[in-house]
């Protein structure tokens, strides 16, 4: 089932890339990066929603699976946020001739990356009982999610150069983006699933070894 999910994601991403490179090419060249950039930014935000839901789930039930899923979602989210910022910077350099500049979208994306980075550092830094560390990370996950809308509102105090909407000339371009979107979302789901069960197996193995 997991393999099927990941294989499907892979196929969709290949299809998106092929269409994007042929019929769906956007002019000028650097704008083609949006086929990677946009799906990754959507997934970076979606992973945050997963972190929130699993964190609340952990605090409500105390079941370890919720905590492991929150870790997995944060790790996946960190990867997506890194790709989001990296592709954004490459595009920015080609389009506006600067690697980074304080504009609302750029600032909010950077803060998103920082929130994930701090979450993951908190994960490895908290010592002692597993349950206490899990609770603290859940609290940070919830508080960090409260921060996200505040980040978006605060951005209106900064002038903007980011282009929020992109109009497409052809259905091929829309198709490439939609396939990429579907593929990346499936990839995110598959990664979180895979990582959660991997973390669960690791814990089980550690407990066996201790016994």
């Amino acid at each position: 089932m997991r393999r099927l999910l990941l294989a499907l994601a892979f196929l969709l991403l290949i299809a998106s890339t092929l269409i994007g490179l042929t019929r769906g090419q956007i002019d000028p060249l650097q704008r083609n990066i949006l086929y990677v950039h946009v799906p990754n930014s959507v997934c970076a935000l979606l992973c945050f929603v997963v972190v929130l839901v699993t964190s609340v789930g952990y605090l409500a039930t105390g079941k370890q699976t919720w905590d492991l899923a929150a870790t997995a979602a944060a790790e996946a989210g960190f990867v997506f946020a890194t790709i989001l910022n990296a592709t954004g910077m490459i595009f920015s350099r080609a389009e506006w001739n600067v690697w980074w500049t304080p504009s609302p979208r750029l600032v909010t994306s950077a803060i998103l990356w920082f929130l994930y980075a701090v979450y993951l550092i908190l994960r490895v830094s908290l010592p002692g009982a597993q349950r206490r560390a899990a609770r603290l990370c859940a609290v940070f996950g919830i508080v960090a999610f409260l921060d996200v809308p505040l980040v978006y509102i605060s951005a209106r105090f900064i002038p903007d150069i980011h282009r929020p909407n992109f109009s497409f000339d052809s259905t091929w371009q829309t198709a490439a983006l939609m396939l990429g979107m579907a593929g990346t979302i499936l990839l995110a789901a598959g990664l979180i699933w895979l990582r959660t069960s991997l973390l669960r197996d690791t814990l089980k193995l550690e407990q066996e070894l201790l016994r």
């Binding site: 929130l115 701090v118 550092i121 830094s125 002692g128 940070f140 960090a144 980040v151 951005a155």
Partner: peptide, 29 residues
Amino acid sequence: LFSAAVQLTRTRGALLSIVVLVLLMPMMI
């Protein structure tokens, strides 16, 4: 809030600063 959370960690002060700074970033603007 997070002062209570990081008390038992080895990198207490530094950990508290990154947690607080990242959450306060939107207010700083």
